[in-house]
Design a protein around this nucleic acid. Sequence first.
DNA 1: AAAATAGTGTCTGTCAGACAGTATTCT
DNA 2: AGAATACTGTCTGACAGACACTATTTT
Lengths: 246, 246
Amino acid sequence: MRTKPLSPKRPGPEFPVPYTSVDVVIFTVLEDALQVLLVQRPGDGDEPFPDCWALPGGFIDTVVDATLEDCARRKLKDKTGVSSPYLEQLGSWGSATRDPRGWSATHVYFALIPSKDVVLARGANAADVAWFSIDKVLRESRLAFDHRDILQAALERLRSKVEYTSLPAFLLPEPFTLPQLQHVYEVVLGRAVDKSGFRTRMLSAQFLEEVGYTDGESNRPAKGFRLANRSAPVVFPRTFSPRGGN
Amino acid sequence: MRTKPLSPKRPGPEFPVPYTSVDVVIFTVLEDALQVLLVQRPGDGDEPFPDCWALPGGFIDTVVDATLEDCARRKLKDKTGVSSPYLEQLGSWGSATRDPRGWSATHVYFALIPSKDVVLARGANAADVAWFSIDKVLRESRLAFDHRDILQAALERLRSKVEYTSLPAFLLPEPFTLPQLQHVYEVVLGRAVDKSGFRTRMLSAQFLEEVGYTDGESNRPAKGFRLANRSAPVVFPRTFSPRGGN
DNA sequence: AAAATAGTGTCTGTCAGACAGTATTCT
DNA sequence: AGAATACTGTCTGACAGACACTATTTT
């Protein structure tokens, strides 16, 4: 905060204040692909980027939202119906030019949810909310504002953290099996992972609780697991394959 | 951004907008200790937290600052005279209660600078800017706003990244020697590091350029080095000591 | 019985940590 | 010469990656 009292830069009605918003990058795994939730901006009215797809988000409601994270949770709940996602702050983007209406800054969160828990934007205009495969959207779509940069940053953060954390577990509905979890790792990382190493790694990290019954989505049933602690991922002591990554 | 045109929540003169500021956590190593730069808030006037020490920062100047990062650089330059620090975004803190004046959000950056490059706040009121040992400030001082939480978060981020990156090199003036660099690692981590392992690690990471002349601040002179690329740190393939940390 | 997938056992190369040893300068 | 510090060499235990093997279920 400012050190001088009554600083000439102190904002008020007579000084320009940046627009402040919160956006959420919501990831899931659907149809063997990493996907992101986007909303379509209105084509009428005087809003910028008409008909463009954009990350869900919007201005802070200073009456309803107690904190930035509350605001992000609210927006996520509005669009997906999910109320207990994995949610972490990604960063903020702010500049004089990112919004044609003027200086704006957005606080960006990134969320991981199991696709089965989702009920896309009930009522109203459900058609303007949809999942997009990450690869496709980065290859083909033009997103509103600087949302392409933001999405890129979120993807990098996710991929990098998947190398040494249990994050992918938040993309699956419980209970899940180890082969299912391994598959999610492979989808996100875009490469195969050794089964044996994967299993010892997951089990020795102590973050999974064995759920009695097993699940038979393939030939031989497998043990079911759930997270011992849904509030935070586990950090593994080493990254997945030192040769491949950074 | 908002999907509906003319949303009732769209801020304007008639709707409350959060205050938006930028704060910077500036670290250096001085007198064998990790230190942070704080400024003292004014005791007169109607400003909150009078006489409290706080992180340097303040409101965005939408005329001067093109981006959030520009704003952070400007504040850092103002207080320290340093214009090419290592600077990275730490995160943002926003809530209805963190500032008694109303809903506010701050974008926080963290910077690493060599203490020798610093010329503390020239002119004006130099007495209200000072370095504080991290340990002391976290033990003894009461900081303004939620700056204690922010400082704690910055410290965690720094300590964690030091385990697997070349970040400490940005805390030293160039040229520096490997023993000096090792010492900085030890100061930040708060523990001793093996010499042999340290050297092979640094040299094999290819981020140091040998500068011809050597430096004799101890008995036997040592080779001098500088960073090949000052814009980003190097990420090591493994963390420092798997037994100790996470 | 065959196919398919879940789960385990074993080997091996790599490498960080530990520590001893050598080199070069100052007093 | 001795002290102090820069720098190098060697050993060893731990462990990730690779891959072969066993177990259990469906068809």
